[in-house]
Design a protein around this nucleic acid. Structure first.
Length: 542
RNA sequence: GCCCCCUUAGCUCAGUAGGAUAGAGCACAGGAUUCCUAAUCCUGGUGUCAGAGGUUCGAAUCCUCUAGGGGGCACCA
């Protein structure tokens, strides 16, 4: 239903140009099925009153095939009402090839990389990581359906201080379990899982590190810890239904000389310089507050060094767009990384950073106390086990990522009967069940036919909503906002359930039943498509 | 001190690229099932869009200031 094309042509007939034709669904039914304020936007440039421009555009459009009525209203809106035959025709197209109708080609095979979660492999994933995972996965799915070639990547910070602290924490527990002692590192990881790791190590490696100093065996402890934690993280993510295409190790960036090569390139471009024994990156040249240290005066690299190399490497791997999904606490880091992109000679739009805000965990309205230092926190795994992956994801995806989220475990569970996710899934399951019944009754499903039998108000409403999916989809892709899908699905289910209650699909005269089955099939296809974007299951039975 | 994000109904949140009379769910009250799944449906009302200025035909949306909440400002990661 590309109404935009009609409008664009009509605008051109006036000798004007509309780079983007805004379309909206009017809040009031009297304003038609769809509306555009384009005349008002153009009026200024044309130096003419908005209503006059609107009248002229409307005059051109009123002859076009899809429209029953084209009206000018208010300050200069153009309101469209579709012909029934047009709606049936579009529904037929949707049914004929749902994925073609529902997945608008926007990416043209452009390669995009979405990097998300990227939690330090020093502990289990917590709920905040879960939010990033849900958003990242849904966004990736969304972009993929828009024709982008998407890679999902997890960046593993397996170099540097944090993993060393993990190693030493394990080492200390290792000694402790063996009845020896080793001072626990100041900022070590105090969670119970560290003791578990130490015990595992004793089981597999025995007591052979018993008399060692940490420095002698640091490499082994770090490698072991990282490996175990990564395994656990990957498991947790799988349990959450989130899978990555690629895991990029930070350590590998060093080992393969990529950090060095990248810094050399920057040096060649004059973007880094030596001062006071350290190597600095000229980020002020790109609007950052101050230049940033890349290599410290003791010769060791900062985190920034590998992050520079990492982004350099991503671009060199041929991605036209990089999307980073970060926790909001990293937002101060954005100007620095953008500066890197520009210093390397690429437009900063090459990188888009989406921030995901913090999650406050509640249980029955009371905040759950978490102490990172003491290693006490509620893990993603625990929440998924208690609440379920579908519900957890759905809750994450019913909020804008950049606003704080209160996640009340009790509410998420208690609501389970009236939880939004079930509301949507239930619509899907109900339709499945109608089909099962129809099959029992030997009713031919076959090709969509007799759609013009759908005359009930609820049916017309459903059809219109279905046909709006592409408009929603396009907006969600453009703005990279998967939560729009979530809201759309709730609205669609909100039209289906009343319809289901008021009208019967089966048991009507066969022609009508077949038409209604077709409508149901379309609703199911759209629900299924949307849920698959969100990574939420579409159950056949509930 | 400087910077970023947030503030919309009792609660949790939407509000699509500046558009018309600001919306859902929850909660609350009452009702619907001999019939395709009652995880459903129907009927009830709710707003100083944090506040004050500004930009314009038009602002919850853009700009400035103020208040409140969160986060960030290292040769930390």
């Amino acid at each position: 239903m590309d109404v935009r094309e009609y409008i664009r042509k009509a605008v051109q007939a006036l000798g004007a140009e509309a780079p983007f034709v805004e379309l909206e669904v009017p809040k009031v039914a009297e304003h038609g099925d769809l509306s555009t304020p384009v005349a008002m936007t153009l009026a200024r440039g044309l130096g003419r009153p908005p209503r006059a421009v609107a009248e002229e555009i409307a005059a051109v459009l009123s002859g076009e095939e899809p429209f029953e009525r084209v009206e000018v209203a208010g300050p200069g809106f153009i309101n469209f009402t579709f012909k029934r035959e047009f709606l049936y025709g579009e529904l037929g197209r949707l049914l004929k090839d749902p994925s073609r109708y529902l997945r608008k080609e926007m990416g043209k095979g452009q390669r995009l990389q979405v990097e998300f979660v990227s939690a330090n492999p020093t502990g289990p994933l917590h709920l905040g990581h879960g939010r990033g995972a849900a958003v990242g996965a849904a966004l990736s799915n969304l972009l993929q359906r828009a024709g982008y070639d998407v890679e999902r990547e997890f960046y593993v910070n397996d170099a540097g201080r944090q993993v060393r602290l993990l190693g030493e924490s394990i080492f200390s527990r290792y000694k402790e379990v063996l009845g020896l002692s080793w001072p626990f590192p100041q900022e070590g990881y105090r969670g119970e899982y560290v003791r578990g790791l130490a015990e595992t190590l004793i089981r597999t490696e025995g007591e052979r590190f018993k008399d060692s100093e940490f420095d002698e065996v640091a490499g082994e402890f770090i490698r072991f810890g990282v490996e175990q934690m990564l395994k656990e993280i990957e498991d947790d993510l799988r349990g959450f239904g989130v899978v990555f295409d690629r895991w990029q190790s930070e350590r590998a960036l060093y080992e393969e000389g990529l950090v060095q090569r990248c810094l050399d390139e920057l040096r060649g471009k004059g973007k880094v310089y030596e001062k006071e024994g350290a190597l600095w990156f000229r980020s002020t040249e790109y609007g950052d507050d101050k230049d940033r240290v890349v290599i410290k005066s003791d010769g060791s690299p900062t985190y920034f060094a590998s992050d520079i190399a990492y982004h350099w490497y991503k671009i060199h791997r041929g991605f036209q767009g990089l999307i980073n999904i970060w926790g909001a606490d990293h937002h101060g880091y954005i100007p620095r990384i953008k500066a890197v992109i520009r210093a390397l000679g690429y437009p900063e739009e090459r990188l888009r950073v989406l921030l995901v805000q913090m999650v406050t965990l509640l249980r029955g309205g009371v905040p759950v106390q978490m102490s990172k230092r003491a290693g006490e926190f509620v893990t993603l795994r625990e929440v998924v086990e208690e609440v379920g992956a579908d519900t957890t994801k759905f809750i994450f995806l019913t909020r804008r990522p950049d606003s704080h989220l209160e996640f009340d475990i009790e509410v998420a569970k208690k609501e389970s009967a009236e939880n939004p996710v079930y509301y949507v899934q239930y619509a899907h399951a109900r339709i499945q069940s109608i089909f099962a019944k129809a099959e029992e009754q030997g009713l031919e499903l076959g090709e969509a036919a007799g759609l013009d039998r759908l005359k009930e108000e609820e049916e017309i409403g459903l059809i219109k909503k279905l046909l709006l999916y592409p408009l929603m989809f396009e907006g969600a892709v453009r703005e990279m906002e998967p939560h729009r899908v979530t809201f759309y699905l709730q609205e669609l289910a909100g039209l289906f359930h009343p319809y289901y209650n008021r009208h019967r699909v089966l048991g009507e005269e066969p022609g009508l039943s077949r038409a209604r089955l077709s409508l149901c099939r379309a609703v199911m296809a759209v629900l299924g498509e949307g849920l698959s974007i969100l990574g939420v299951t579409a159950p056949k039975r509930m």
